[in-house]
């Protein structure tokens, strides 16, 4: 009796997941395996002949200085961008939740950067960062000497991270709000009646209750920052991850090798994709293991 019930539940599970799973198999996993296959070739989409070269692409990768530079930069994007973005957005979300009047207006205010196309705002940011731009004018007002923020290899990557954080906030705030508002009000009420301070409530109720949301945002934040591309392309000098590769990210380098280099080094780009894939996979699995608490 118990077994059949369990089995019937399994069947429902398989039925529910069947269509999405087949879809992912065909549209995502298949093409991913194709990229794996391509990575063992000297592959140019245009050429007639695409010879198998085994692990050569991977061997070249290990010695490619620009690749390692991109790898390092990508970690800077992740290790600075993700914590910065998450902590700011959590603060904003907590604040927005407390707003009594015009809460919709305030939320829209923080959401808007996310809907604005980077092509259009990219130059606004470049305009603010340029040596005779707004940021330097403001700094100059306080007597601080300006800087060519995007043109200086020491600062360019941080300038881009600020833009990335700015753009991602709207997304994270909305998800945090959805998470916060799924926390049953009576939990916090009860704690307040018991005399808990705001900090205690935050520490012992809000954060644990928010765990699935935080897991989601950390994991997706890390994944998307590991794949940072558009922001670097539209902000960095010449759009090539400069100056002197100080802002180049792995995906931008993948893109350059696959589609800008002549002849296209699609095989090489695929090898990078494969490496990136396993890095992200390993990190994600670890994150899920460490962060996830079973709420059952």
């Amino acid at each position: 009796m118990h077994l059949t019930l369990e089995r019937r539940k399994w069947l429902w599970g398989y039925a529910f997941i069947a269509i999405p799973f087949l879809f992912f198999l065909a549209v995502r996993i298949g093409p991913t395996l194709y990229a794996f296959w391509v990575s063992f070739h000297q592959w140019d989409p245009i050429a007639l002949d695409r010879p198998w070269i085994g692990l050569d692409n991977y061997r070249d990768l290990a010695q490619d200085k620009v690749f390692w530079k991109a790898m390092r930069n990508t970690w800077i994007y992740v290790l600075i961008g993700v914590p910065l973005g998450l902590s700011i957005s959590l603060l904003i979300a907590l604040g927005l939740q407390q707003i009594v009047r015009w809460s919709g207006f305030f939320r829209a205010l923080y959401f808007i950067p996310y809907v604005t196309s980077l092509v259009a705002v990219g130059w606004v940011w470049r305009w603010m960062y340029m040596p005779n731009g707004l940021i330097n004018e403001v700094l100059g007002f306080f007597g601080i000497h300006g800087n060519n923020w995007l043109g200086n290899p020491a600062t360019a990557i941080y300038a881009i991270i600020i833009t990335t954080v700015w753009q991602g906030l709207g997304f994270q705030v909305v998800i945090f709000l959805a998470g916060l508002e799924s926390i049953p009000q009576d939990y916090t009420d009860a704690a307040a009646v018991d005399g808990a301070t705001g900090w205690q409530i935050f520490r012992h109720i809000t954060i644990p209750q928010l765990n699935p949301t935080i897991v989601f945002l950390v994991v997706t934040g890390v994944i998307s920052n590991l794949q940072v591309f558009t922001q670097v392309r539209s902000m960095s000098s010449q759009g090539t991850g400069g100056p002197l590769n100080s802002t180049i990210s792995i995906v931008l380098y993948v893109y350059q090798k696959a589609f800008q280099s002549l002849p296209s080094k699609m095989g090489y780009a695929s090898a990078m994709t494969v490496v990136l894939f396993f890095i992200i996979l390993a990190i994600t699995v670890v994150q899920l293991k460490v962060l996830q608490r079973d709420t059952d």
Partner: peptide, 13 residues
Amino acid sequence: LILSTLMVPTEML
């Protein structure tokens, strides 16, 4: 497996 599909940039697909 489903999560892993997030790990390949669209440009390569």
